[in-house]
Design a binder for these strands. Sequence first.
DNA 1: TCACTTGTGGAAAAAAGTGGGTCGAAATCC
DNA 2: GGATTTCGACCCACTTTTTTCCACAAGTGA
Lengths: 147, 147
Amino acid sequence: MLRGNHPARVDDKGRLKIPNAFRVLLEAQYGPEVFVTSVTGEYVRVYPMPVWLEIERKLAAVPQSSPARQRFLDRVNFFGQVLSLDKQGRVLIPQLLRESAAMSGEVAVLGLMNHVAVWNHKRLHDRLFKKEPFTDEDGRVLAEFGI
Amino acid sequence: MLRGNHPARVDDKGRLKIPNAFRVLLEAQYGPEVFVTSVTGEYVRVYPMPVWLEIERKLAAVPQSSPARQRFLDRVNFFGQVLSLDKQGRVLIPQLLRESAAMSGEVAVLGLMNHVAVWNHKRLHDRLFKKEPFTDEDGRVLAEFGI
DNA sequence: TCACTTGTGGAAAAAAGTGGGTCGAAATCC
DNA sequence: GGATTTCGACCCACTTTTTTCCACAAGTGA
């Protein structure tokens, strides 16, 4: 299970090094192939191929796709691509994603159980701590779960 | 059960020595793996892995995550990492936490039953005695509980 | 004082991450 | 169509970081 944030960087060629802590788990459990995509273009998600196939299966099982669901799928496909890790454990982020999701320089690779999300570090930090400052509501949640 | 404050220090390499009083209890009851995180970046919490998994389980059980709760989780994940104690009973605090939570030099390791909180000593002291001076209200609480 | 535990610092080894270079395929432009 | 450029795949070598291990210092109690 993938958890926590391992910082990484996207180099000038657009290659993202998957931090080893994640890479080892991913490869051991799911193999070298991944599906890279984004819904909003704000950040990128990297799914191990088997996990992505399962998601696809679920989506296909829905009998009549609503317009919203259809649009969603179109978006995912617009940005989507099957990739595999190179010998150094890197994936080449497609140009389209690099631009919209600001995949360059410092990024945060977040473990989300069976896949990872990749954010431009600054973008995520601003979002979590500047745009959305700590509130009383947060305090309540904190107390509720003892975190 | 972990209680009280054991001072410790974070060395130049960012390694935090878990005071032995805590370490022995932690390892004996939960093993060497911990989840280190923070919500605000102000201070750090170190959970034995089994304890953290239990919290995760509880969080997952909440049916519809509110935006507040989701944001909260994102924050925890942003600062989080799975680590394990080395042979000397130290954990390497991730850079991100070292910076935001001022994890260097003297720190206070506070026992909170099933996990510990780690504060920069000065920061905690200032907070408790300068920013939040002792008030009549405190006196009342003190009397109420006979502390 | 001596044995023993706890905490500290740092060297050496191993692993992880980084930066390019080359080559071939595909796209682009005369 | 042929020359030129761009881009991605693959590979190699270097640098940096992390881990592991060892040894010593300080503190404690008998």
